[in-house]
Amino acid sequence: MSTANHGNTHSVRHHAHHYESAEHEHQSSKEGVWVFLCTEILMFGGLFVAYAIFHHLFPETFKIGSKFTDVRYGATNTVVLLFSSLTMALGIYYCQIKDQKKAVIALSITILCGFIFMGIKYLEYSHKIHLGLLPGDWYAGNADMIASEIGNLKLPENIGLYFSFYFMMTGIHGIHVLIGMGLIGWVLIRTMRGEFGPNYYTPVEGVGLFWHLVDLVWIYLFPLLYLVE
């Protein structure tokens, strides 16, 4: 491997050879991230469209299914993610105003929020698995435990479909949270090394955009899965 021709001896960050300037590279990278976010929207969008269709076909299934979700958990997770979005934005802000120490703190809190979010998810998942509320064919609801959970409601035949949506949507979202946490960890380490400042913080901003998108998806998932009427 030879990357020696990118050798950098200046104190100013060196931009890649095919860009005119660091600013040119920054703008291009950011646009690349936005294009990527556009693909994410369409990827999650497929699930949302499927949700819209099946909610239209089987409103009862979704209404009763959502009784198994706990709004308190969902609302807490919403607040946690919104707060992490704030700290992520502040991480970039502190890079912009060259306050390395506060940037490190902000990014660390963001990762911590990610852990809290996943912890709550774990509680929710294990509870549902315990009750046998599994997706589709795997649905094996325990009648007694369900009755103590939501009372004696007649469950629709295809209640498993709701849990398919629940697990697919939150599962794919959860994978994104984990990836986001990994990426934030990566920029956190680089921030600690003092690699970022007002002149160069592209990776922090790119990772931040990704993290905000994960938050955006959750903003829609919360009412769709926890508050269906």
Partner: peptide, 28 residues
């Protein structure tokens, strides 16, 4: 890093206060 260079980056910096207001609105 890079404290000697200037002028190349004219990025708009959103004030801290705005971030906090937006966060409050989101929680509301």
């Amino acid at each position: 890093m890079g404290n000697t260079s200037h002028g190349a980056h004219e990025h708009h910096i959103i004030p801290l206060k705005t971030y906090l207001q937006v966060f409050a609105a989101l929680i509301f």
